[in-house]
Structure formats: C-alpha cells, structure tokens
Write a protein that binds this DNA or RNA. Structure first.
Lengths: 131, 131
DNA sequence: ACACATCATATTCCTTGTCATTGAATGACG
DNA sequence: CGTCATTCAATGACAAGGAATATGATGTGT
C-alpha cells in the first residue's frame, strides 16, 4: 500500500522529470533559434514551416496540412507564412479546385535558404539531442 | 564509411525525434495551462514560479534564485511575480542585508492555492508523462 | 571619500502568439 | 435552386515574452 511518503517522492520525481524536459526543450529551441536568426535571419518557427513546405514539395502543400503537422495555431501559421512570403521565401498559390484553400511553394530563394539552414538545423539538433 | 543516404536517414530520424519532443512538450504544457487557468485562474508559468517559491519556503527565496531555476528570462520572471503579487498570492519583501535583492513569500492565499493547484499539476504530469 | 564597474531588479519597446471573429467558398439536403 | 452548417484562411484586439536599457544598491581601487 502506498504511503503518503511514497506519493511525495513520486511527485518530486515527476516534477523533476518535467523540469528536465522543459530545460532541454528550451535549450535546444533557443540555440537553434539564435543560430538561424544570426546566420539566416529567420526564426525557428519560420524555419520549421519552411521545412514542412520543403518536405511536401512533390505533393503541393495546403496551409491546412501545415496546421496538422505543427503544434502552432492556425492563426500563428498564417502569420508565419505572411513573414515568409514577405521575405520572398514562399509564395501562396490559390487553388482552383477549392478556392478556400491555398498551396504553398518555395521560391528559388526559399529553396536555397532552406538547403543551407537545414544543415545548421540538423547539426544543432544532433548536438543538443545527443545521438 | 557513411554514405549520403545514411546521413539523410539519420537527419530524418533526428527531425522526427525533435518533432515528437515538441509535440509532447506542447501537449503537456497546454493541458496543464488550460486546466490551471480554468480551475485556479493562473497560468502555467505563474504556477511554476509559485511552485518554486513554495519549495524554498524555508530558505526565503530571492528573485535571482528563481531565474536560475527556470528557463524564463529575468524580465519574464519579474512580470510573472508582478501578476502573482497583484493576485495576492505572493509578496515581495525587501531585504535588509542587500537592498537590491528581494525575498518572496507566499501569502496565506497563495499557500492555499498552491496546495490545491499542485495536486492538479502533478496529476496532469503523471497523465501526460506516463509513469 | 570619489569615481567606476558590477549587480539585482524593474521597465520600455517591440515581436510574436492566441482567441475570437470575419469573409469567402463549399457541401448537404429539403 | 435556397437555406443553413461547415470549412479554410486572414485579421484585429489583446496578453505575454525577450532584448535592451534604466534605476538604484554594492563593491573596488586609489
């Protein structure tokens, strides 16, 4: 039977596990964000959207699909795409089949930046996630 | 010797590992945040500061010390404490030895709220972190 | 005692995110 | 068709965080 003391110990461990997750998450995200900002002038969220668009390059990428692949809100995604578009890295293409939807495409500049930034991104992941 | 193909595979795994960390971090943090907000009207960051203050109850807690225990910025901590103070949950005590420093104390109300909120917090951690 | 670097915290300004709402397009069905 | 609900995306109002800076207190060297 579990004593009060057991529960307190267990709680303590849970909290420590959680803090350790938080720390490694923030450490990693922060390091990547700063590096990308410094070298490519784009933030982590922007890179991640760029990365998703690059991934689905073959199958033309709807905004909707992006929303399902990141923890970001729909409106956050919309704004990130705004910035990427203003920076000339992606373009929104209206879709004839369903005119509510949009397709996203990398511009040449976007493709080039992504290629370079991805190298940095993977390197920092490797460094921070160990393995 | 590592082929190009090997590197691509490895990168893919890294990225997937990272996305999985992100998802579980956001899922957990989001769940806790919403629950605390709904039941106790305080956000996750506020609870975490409250939790740290409660922990160091014996040894009176300087702002500085808080900053070292969370991934939050110094200015973020300062603002979170503002809100906690406005909500009547903690109080800032000026420190006679070094008048740059502050000590934080839970008010009665803060101690009570923390006790209840902590139960919810641990339960959600358990649920989300598994174990 | 004075000038100056350093430290703990607060504050300002800007960016980004969320929530709620909107607008437009589509689908479902009598 | 005509209505009504639903879907996709954008927007505006607002809250929260970060960087840089301000403010005030301490320490240090001379």
């Amino acid at each position: 039977m579990a004593t009060t003391r057991d529960r307190q110990l267990h709680d303590r461990q849970l909290v420590e596990q959680w803090r350790s997750i938080q720390n490694s998450y923030f450490r990693t995200a922060g390091a990547i964000d700063r590096a990308l900002e410094a070298k490519f002038d784009i933030g982590l969220n922007e890179f991640e959207i760029l990365d998703l668009v690059a991934e689905s390059e073959e199958s033309a990428c709807r905004m909707k699909a992006l929303g399902e692949r990141t923890p970001m809100t729909q409106s956050a995604v919309s704004k990130v795409v705004d910035r990427l578009e203003k920076a000339g890295l992606v373009s929104r293409q209206t879709c004839v089949d369903d005119r509510r939807s949009l397709f996203l495409e990398l511009t040449e500049e976007g493709r080039a930046l992504h290629a370079n930034a991805a190298v940095e991104h993977r390197a920092l992941l490797k460094e921070n996630l160990g393995s």
